[in-house]
């Protein structure tokens, strides 16, 4: 029995020692970066964090959603290092962060979110305005048939959107449905809510009278996207990376990372990597538009 115990403890110490020896060279100090904010950016931020593990195995990026506002609030009380935001920070929020942390907010534009409006190949209508889109999508809107948009096409418009907890849903609602009497207009009832952006495009491909919205990255050769203008009669802009970057395309916005004070050390390295071609490639893979 005692010999057995001796062998066992020896064995355990040997294994532990081996483990320690093996660990030592790679064991740089473990660093955790907390990133919180926009739900739109959660998947993108998670993809970044995962890819970054391969670049720097000792850096763990902990990604959380909750919304851009939640992220900025977390920046104020120091419960996050990076704030993902799908909108620009408001001046009063900047003030608050400065008042509580004593640091100036630093802004990094990291990607562009641009939504395309997709239609079926059979549909000859090639352009549409944000105003018209509002009447089509918003609750109480007047447009329900394609005839109302243009005499070129007929039939009731079949609408395909995203499920109500997706960031894409939020952004499209905010941007297209607009406000009425100071209140956000909701989507009209009877929109098919798909669980993925690719599903939306897939259904639009199969449905002649369809109209759907999704990120620009989901375009396939079997589906059309519409040129979009702000108002009817104004020149419509073809969706595309360049139009989104220049800001000419109406349904696009920048995505930001905010920090309290200039990012330093591992955090700076992480943001630099996000802005590098490797980080921007992931932006594209996740269906967003890269900055360059």
């Amino acid at each position: 029995m005692t010999t057995y115990r001796k062998t066992l403890s020896l064995g355990i110490s040997a294994v532990t020692a081996l483990f320690l020896v093996a660990q030592t060279p790679a064991a740089d100090k473990k660093v955790e970066i907390r990133a919180k904010g926009s739900d739109t950016m959660v998947q993108l931020a998670t993809a970044w964090a995962e890819a970054y593990r391969k670049v720097k195995p000792n850096v763990f990026v902990n990604v959380n959603g909750g919304g851009s506002g939640t992220g900025i609030a977390a920046l104020q009380n120091g419960s996050t290092d990076l704030c993902n935001a799908s909108r620009e920070i408001k001046p009063e929020e900047k003030e608050k962060v400065k008042a509580t942390s004593g640091k100036e907010v630093k802004e990094y534009a990291v990607a562009i979110d641009a939504l395309a409006v997709y239609s079926n190949k059979a549909n000859p209508i090639k352009e549409i305005s944000v105003e018209e889109l509002r009447e089509i999508w918003a609750e109480g809107g007047a447009t329900t048939t394609w005839e109302q948009v243009s005499p070129k096409f007929k039939g009731k418009i079949a609408l395909f959107g995203r499920q109500n907890n997706s960031g894409t849903y939020d952004y499209f609602r905010e941007h297209i449905c607009g406000k009425k009497d100071g209140k956000q207009r909701e989507f009209r009832p009877g929109i098919s809510e798909m669980n993925g952006s690719a599903d939306v495009v897939e259904n639009v491909t199969k449905t002649p009278t369809a109209l759907g919205y999704s990120g620009m990255g989901y375009k396939t050769p079997d589906v059309n996207w519409l040129k979009v203008s702000n108002k009817k009669g104004e020149p419509a802009v073809e969706p595309g990376a360049d139009a989104a970057r220049s800001g000419k395309y109406p349904i696009s916005r920048k995505l930001y990372i905010y920090t309290a004070g200039e990012a330093t050390g591992e955090m700076k390295a992480y943001i630099d990597w996000i802005l590098s071609p490797a980080g921007q490639k992931i932006v594209e893979q996740e269906g967003f538009v890269p900055l360059k």
């Binding site: 109500n164 907890n165 939020d170 609602r173 905010e174 209140k183 956000q184 909701e186």
Partner: peptide, 19 residues
């Protein structure tokens, strides 16, 4: 039939489950 569990900023959620 208005099932709007995640309303836009400033709106109240609507939990109509008729549909």
């Amino acid at each position: 039939p208005r099932w709007i569990p995640n309303p836009g900023t400033g709106n109240d959620a609507s939990f109509g489950a008729l549909a």
